[in-house]
Each structure stands twice: as structure tokens, then as C-alpha cells.
Nucleic acid binder design. Structure first.
Length: 632
DNA sequence: GCCGTTTTCGGCCCGACTGTTTTCAGTCG
């Protein structure tokens, strides 16, 4: 949390400094840091009179650039700028968000950012400017020229940029408080386009504090999605039903539940749907679609289509948007049209639509699994014979190589963990408690590990059909040395090396730290390499590509941590690692017996990174696993 | 602002729903 706040503070400092009217320059490079393209080595401007304490600035994160491009797009919308210019900023933001590589690092490597999808010379220049100064001129001017607080208004459902602007121009409304006052004083209804319903909607949104949907972890929405899907399938007149969207693609986070139902009686389905017991509020209810809020605040968007359109509706609502748009472009190239109702020729004759396979086939493409539909080359691959990967499956996993027990901060005993692994049908399980540096979780010393090994051996003998491996998740210290000596580690079957402290070192120091760990022959697996927590904590700053290459040369495997909060290495890193020939382990980092069930999230990340069974060490037998782990 | 069986400028996804209107603009996904 502290780390998060620090990052926020630094980002806020950069932004505040950059908008000051009177400016002077201040070099802010921290002592000992190497020159780089990051903000921590550049000159930033600060307003006169602001007391400046020398502070080590973080590298500019891709997410900072994304936020600025989104803000730019929002402010342009409030100015009624051309939709295409706005869309260009949003498209660029999406590209950067999904990039998986640090922009500053790319610039440092001399790469041309304008080669990225949707980023031309102009935006490439603006990105460089952001990384140098923390902002860019057009945004600063726009912030001055417009009323940035109007963005708040668009957080109210059914109020978009046009209505926000109207409210500002006609009633002088600048923020949510002004809006509430205007409603209460009856001024809103004087405005053309606003009536009783608008007043109700605004007051309701104020009351519930409802804002535009926030994203949630996949694991947090799973139960709701499964119940919803079961409910939809149980309705009268339903032929098929599916929760699509990012939930179906098994993304790390989910914004809402996009659902599709196949039925020839749409109205009847919608009528039954709005009676779903988990619904808190019906946002809208049409003839063939409806949006509702569940009690948890999660939004569900339902669309009902005829059976002959179910496949195309699934493709449409599963997304990702750019996957679906690429298909649409392909249709246009052939003088055809693809929408949620099917693929149509010039005369509007349906060519395909009943199943997803039919649609892909009409484009001469192999079926593309939902996890791959991110417009990351899957369509090109599907056009080639055997071009798509044969994705790893949860059933391919034969053991878990990362879990904790009551010896450190786990909640179950060695025996309980072993029994549970056996029940899951695993061939092996590695017990990998924390090392001594992690004092707050009772990390183990070399002596403790030897004692634990005796217990592991006993349990191993007791539980037939499962091989219990003695291991450790060893801390990588700030200087890159390991928390335990070679002597302590030599006898272990599995050594995972992870970072748990000093998460905010400079990119150079953090990279050097991991390089040193990788050089250590005891480092068989690097655990949760990015150190991030989804929606909670940024990743550590490292030269990921360099580290992955070094790991490959050294024979280290990279963990795909299956904890739904981590999913680390992330899918973009996985894809890069895969391309350079690295091997992975997929493990849960379970801290309880139930935690072993989290394996699916790791498998989903692997699948989203195009990983096959052969790329993962713990899909092999005990013997092949021993051979595949780095020899010491 | 990007892109291009490009080269200098035109096209850029599109359908459902809502509220207020009386045929449509704005919003959303």
C-alpha cells in the first residue's frame, strides 16, 4: 500500500509540476542512477514557490500514458472534437495498455513507437514527451481551455460528453454537486432533452454513489457468472445461453457480464430475465436486450438473438473488440458484412451465423479459442495450417510446484496439502515455504528446512501415489543474493526465487538484482517475476526482455503464478518468453488446501500467452520434471 | 489522429435502447 501511495504521489507531483504557470527547471536524477529515457533522469518543471525535496522519481508507467491519452480523449469529447481524432487517442491508449512492454525501455532501445498499431508520428512524439516531462503540450492547453471537472458528469449513466457540455453551457454546471443542486432546484427540467426520468436517474446515481463500472478480478465474478449462466439456461424458451465478454476470454479482470441467449422468443426471455433474484436494479429493458445491476453492483448486459445468429452474437459479445473488428474488416474487404446477426453478402443473404465455427470457416480460419481473441496475431495464425497453438489444458497439469504450509504462512499442514494434491489427481507436489528473511510470516532458516524435510519425507512415505518434493521459496535480497546459502539449498528438490521486498528500486537496480539471482545455479524457477498485484499494485520496474533472455540462457524456468491476484508472469510477458524458448511452471502459490484449486487461473494466463503443454515443466512425469529443472 | 494493392486525402463499425419527441439525438457497448 505504501508503495502504491508513493507511486501515486510521484505521478501527482509530475502532473502538478507540469501544469504550473511559472516554471523553473530542476534536475531530479537520483544519485547512482544510470541515465535512461525515464522521467527519473529528466528535467521536470516545478512552480515557483513549491518546496522541492530531492526525490527519486519512478519511471513513467505505461498506465500513466494510457491515463493521459484517455483524459485527452475525454476532454476532446467535451469540446465536440471530431470523433475520429478522439478514437485515435483511445485506440492508442488501448494499444499501450495491452503492450506488455515498457515504453521508456522501448525508446531507450531505439525502437520506433510509430510502428505500433494506431500510433503514428504525432502520438509517438507525444509519448516521448510524456516520458521526458510527465505530460504533453496539447493536454496542458486543453486542461486550461476546458473545464476538466466536467469529466465527473459523464460518470453518471446516460450523461455523455454532449449532455455534460450542454449542462455547462446552459446552466453553468461544473461538477456533480452543481448538478445535484440544479436537479433539486428544478432547473434541469427546463433544459431541452432532460425530463423527469433524467432527474430520477441523476438523483439515484448520486444516492448510490454509482459510478461507471470498475473492473473486478475474474475470480470475484466467477460465482455470479456461473449462477447467471445456469439461470439463463433454465429459462423457458432458451436454446442456449452463455456469459461471454472478458469473462469468457478468461482475462485478468472483468468489467461486466456480457451475456448472450439463443431463443426464437426474445421478449419472453427478457421478461423472465428481469425477474432474476440477484438483480438489484433494471437499467433498461428492451425487446431483445436488457441491462441490470446485480446486488453486488456488477452489471449484466443481456442480448437475445435467434438461433441462426447465435454464433455471430457470441463472437460479437465475446470480443475482444479489436478481434471482432478485424473480422469485420475482413468481411468488408470481401464486400460482405459481419455483425451480431451473422455474416451477410451484398444482398443481405446470411452466409454464416449459427455457430462460431461457421463464421470462422467462412473466413477460411480455424476455430479460435476465446482466450486467444485479443487481436494479437491469432487471426493470421488461424489462416495457416496448424498455425494456432494447441493450448495447454488444466488436465495437462500433473503437479503443483509452489505452495505454503503452517511451517511459514500457510494455513494447512504438510500432510493436508499432500492429501489435497492427491485428491486432485496430481503425481507430485512441492512444499515451498518462505525463507528466513520473511520474518513476519515465520520464514524458514536452513536448519528449519532440514527439520521440515524430515516431515516431508514421512508424509511422502505415508501418502501413496504422490511424490512430495522438498522445496523453498527463497527471497532474493536487495543486492541479488539469495536469502539462504548454497549449503541450505543444495539438498532441496525445488528452489523458487522471488522478490518480496524493496519493490520500488530503480529499473537498473531491480534488473541487476534479478540478473544476479539468475546467475546463481540454485535459482531453478523465478517466482511471480513482476511482483504486481492485479488492480492493487504496480509491477516492479525491470528490463523484462533482457531478464527473460538471461533466464533462458541460464536454464531458469519462469513461474506463471496462478493466484488470481497475481497471474504473474502476465500473459504478455509469457508470450514474449515463449517466443524466445523459455520453459514455464504453472503453480498456485497456495496458502491453504483450497488454494490448490486456483490452478485454473494460471492455466488461463498460459493459454492467453499461447502456451502449449510441452512448454510447461509440471505437465511432465516426475522423472521428466527432475531432468527439466535446472541442474545444480 | 491513423491508415493506405498510399503518396496526399478521404474514410474511419454499427445496432439497440431511451427519453422526449413526434422522427431523432445521445448514449452505450
Amino acid at each position: 500500500m505504501i508503495e502504491h501511495l508513493q507511486r501515486f504521489f510521484v505521478a501527482a507531483t509530475i502532473l502538478r509540476c507540469a501544469v504550473g504557470s511559472e516554471r523553473r527547471s530542476l534536475p531530479v536524477r537520483a544519485k547512482g542512477d544510470a541515465p535512461s529515457a525515464f522521467a527519473n533522469t529528466s528535467t521536470i518543471r516545478v512552480p515557483r514557490g513549491l518546496t522541492v525535496i530531492e526525490r527519486k522519481l519512478m519511471a513513467v508507467h505505461n498506465s500513466d500514458v494510457v491515463a493521459m491519452f484517455q483524459e485527452m480523449a475525454d476532454l476532446l469529447e467535451l469540446e465536440d472534437e471530431s470523433t475520429f481524432r478522439i478514437r485515435a487517442y483511445r485506440q492508442a491508449a488501448t494499444t499501450i495498455d495491452e503492450l506488455g512492454r515498457n515504453l521508456g525501455q522501448m525508446i531507450e532501445n531505439g525502437e520506433d513507437l510509430s510502428e505500433l498499431q494506431g500510433i503514428g508520428k504525432d502520438l509517438a512524439g507525444k509519448i516521448e514527451r510524456i516520458i521526458e516531462t510527465g505530460s504533453f503540450d496539447d493536454l496542458e492547453e486543453l486542461r486550461k481551455r476546458t473545464t476538466p471537472s466536467l469529466r465527473e458528469l459523464t460518470h453518471i449513466p446516460q450523461i455523455g460528453p454532449k449532455r455534460a457540455r450542454l449542462l455547462h453551457e446552459k446552466l453553468g454546471i461544473e461538477n456533480l454537486d452543481d448538478l445535484e443542486d440544479a436537479v433539486n432546484e428544478g432547473r434541469l427540467r427546463e433544459l431541452k432533452g432532460f425530463g423527469k426520468r433524467a432527474e430520477e436517474q441523476i438523483l439515484s446515481a448520486m444516492e448510490t454513489g454509482r459510478r461507471k463500472k470498475e473492473r473486478r478480478l475474474l475470480s470475484e465474478v466467477e460465482e455470479a457468472a456461473e449462477s447467471l449462466e445456469a439461470f439463463l439456461n433454465s429459462l423457458n424458451g432458451v436454446k442456449d445461453a452463455c456469459v461471454a465478454g472478458s469473462y469468457r476470454r478468461k482475462a485478468e479482470t472483468v468489467g461486466d457480464l456480457d451475456s448472450v441467449v439463443s431463443s426464437s422468443q426474445p421478449g419472453k426471455i427478457i421478461d423472465q430475465f428481469v425477474e432474476y433474484e440477484d438483480i438489484d436494479q433494471v437499467i433498461n429493458k428492451g425487446k431483445a436486450s436488457s441491462s441490470v445491476l446485480l446486488r453486488s453492483g456488477l452489471q449484466v448486459d443481456l442480448r437475445v438473438v435467434k438461433p441462426e445468429s447465435y454464433g455471430s452474437a457470441l463472437i460479437y459479445f465475446t470480443g475482444a473488440k479489436n478481434h471482432q473488428l478485424t473480422l469485420r474488416d475482413m468481411a468488408l474487404d470481401k464486400d460482405q458484412k459481419l455483425n451480431e446477426y451473422g455474416l451477410f453478402d451484398k444482398k443481405d443473404k446470411q452466409l454464416a451465423g449459427k455457430t462460431e465455427k461457421d463464421i470462422y470457416k467462412a473466413f477460411n480460419l480455424a476455430y479460435i479459442e476465446p482466450e486467444l481473441r485479443e487481436n494479437r496475431g491469432e487471426i493470421d495464425a488461424a489462416a495457416k495450417q496448424n498455425g494456432l497453438p494447441k493450448l495447454i489444458d488444466i488436465d495437462d497439469i500433473r503437479g503443483d510446484l509452489h505452495c505454503h504450509t503452517t511451517w511459514s504462512d500457510g494455513r494447512a499442514s504438510v500432510e493436508k496439502m499432500a492429501e489435497t494434491a492427491k485428491e486432485r489427481g496430481y503425481d507430485y507436489l512441492a512444499i515451498t515455504d518462505h525463507s528466513k528473511r520473511m520474518q513476519m510470516v515465520n520464514g524458514l532458516s536452513g536448519k528449519d528446512l532440514r527439520k521440515q524435510a524430515e516431515e516431508i519425507k514421512k508424509v511422502d512415505e505415508k501418502i501413496k501415489g504422490l511424490t512430495l518434493l522438498a522445496g523453498c521459496e527463497v527471497d532474493i535480497l536487495e543486492d541479488g543474493t539469495l536469502d539462504l546459502s548454497d549449503d541450505d539449498l543444495n539438498d532441496l528438490d525445488v528452489v523458487i526465487c522471488s522478490i518480496h521486498s524493496n519493490m520500488n528500486l530503480s529499473s537498473r537496480k531491480q534488473t541487476d538484482r534479478l540478473l544476479r539471482a539468475i546467475e546463481n545455479p540454485n535459482c531453478q524457477i523465478i517466482g511471480h517475476m513482476r511482483g504486481r498485484k492485479v488492480l492493487e499494485r504496480d509491477e516492479i520496474d525491470i528490463d523484462l526482455e533482457r531478464l527473460l533472455k538471461e533466464a533462458k540462457d541460464a536454464g531458469c524456468a519462469i513461474e506463471i503464478n496462478a493466484d488470481p491476484h497475481r497471474r504473474d508472469l502476465d500473459e504478455n510477458g509469457v508470450r514474449f518468453a515463449l517466443d524466445i524458448g523459455l520453459k514455464f511452471t504453472v503453480s498456485t502459490d497456495a496458502h491453504s488446501a483450497a488454494g490448490l484449486d486456483q490452478m485454473k487461473y494460471g492455466v488461463w494466463t498460459a493459454r492467453r500467452g499461447w502456451v502449449e503443454k510441452k512448454d510447461v515443466l509440471n505437465t511432465g512425469t516426475m522423472n521428466s520434471l527432475r531432468k527439466a529443472l535446472r541442474s545444480r
